[in-house]
């Protein structure tokens, strides 16, 4: 969360582009990552990310702070954009639709090779999860958001988020075990 975020939001709602620019600079990376990890394609992620922030800027006057970070609202917009994207593509993202270049994490050094391979395997395994479980895993373990923040972003209760996380981790373990991935 930005320092003095509520004041910045008020300034942005008053029409100050500079204030929204601060929000953009702070949240562009996590929103981009969230979208990228859901659609698996950099160009599509850039387009969707741009649409998310454009929509946020044009509709910020309707935003009402409810004690959650501004990111929660952005994640809601991002989720809806990705859902619309899936609707256009007529199917959810599956491993077949994944951009191979996206999951291939190159590593120059040999000692990082195992780590790179682990990233690839885990990332692919995440795409084997249900959409909601994917989102909880990404927000919890990549963006380090609290259950409360995730609940606000996904419009669910905190308890529901904990339950989804529990199931997601179980499924992820099963997928990795089936693929021969060691979790030691």
């Amino acid at each position: 969360m930005l320092t003095d975020e509520n004041n910045i939001i008020k300034q942005a709602q008053a029409g100050e582009a500079g204030a929204f620019g601060q929000l953009y600079d702070h949240y562009i990376s996590p929103i981009y990552r969230f979208i990228l990890l859901k659609v698996g394609n950099k160009h599509e992620a850039e387009d969707l990310c741009h649409e998310v922030f454009l929509s946020a800027w044009q509709n910020i006057s309707g935003y009402i702070p409810r004690g959650f970070p501004f990111s929660s609202w952005l994640y809601q917009i991002a989720r809806n954009s990705v859902i619309d994207y899936y609707r256009t593509k007529k199917n959810n993202l599956s491993l077949e639709g994944l951009d191979e270049d996206f999951v291939r994490v190159s590593s120059a050094a040999e000692d990082n090779l195992d780590f790179s391979l682990n990233i690839e395997k885990v990332t692919k395994a995440i795409y084997g999860l249900a959409e909601e479980q994917q989102e909880v895993i990404l927000l919890r373990f990549v963006e380090d958001m609290s259950h409360k923040e995730i609940a606000a972003a996904l419009n669910k209760s905190e308890g529901a988020i904990r339950l989804v996380q529990h199931r997601a981790i179980k499924n992820l373990k099963d997928i990795l075990a089936n693929n021969g991935q060691s979790t030691a």
Partner: peptide, 27 residues
């Protein structure tokens, strides 16, 4: 999972050119 996935924050950062152009257009 934290150990494996947390580095994605750096690996999957948006390209600076995209960020700059997108920001300017939106604002």
């Amino acid at each position: 999972l934290i150990k494996i996935l947390r580095p994605l924050r750096v690996l999957f950062a948006p390209h600076p050119d995209f960020t700059q152009k997108s920001r300017a257009i939106i604002l």
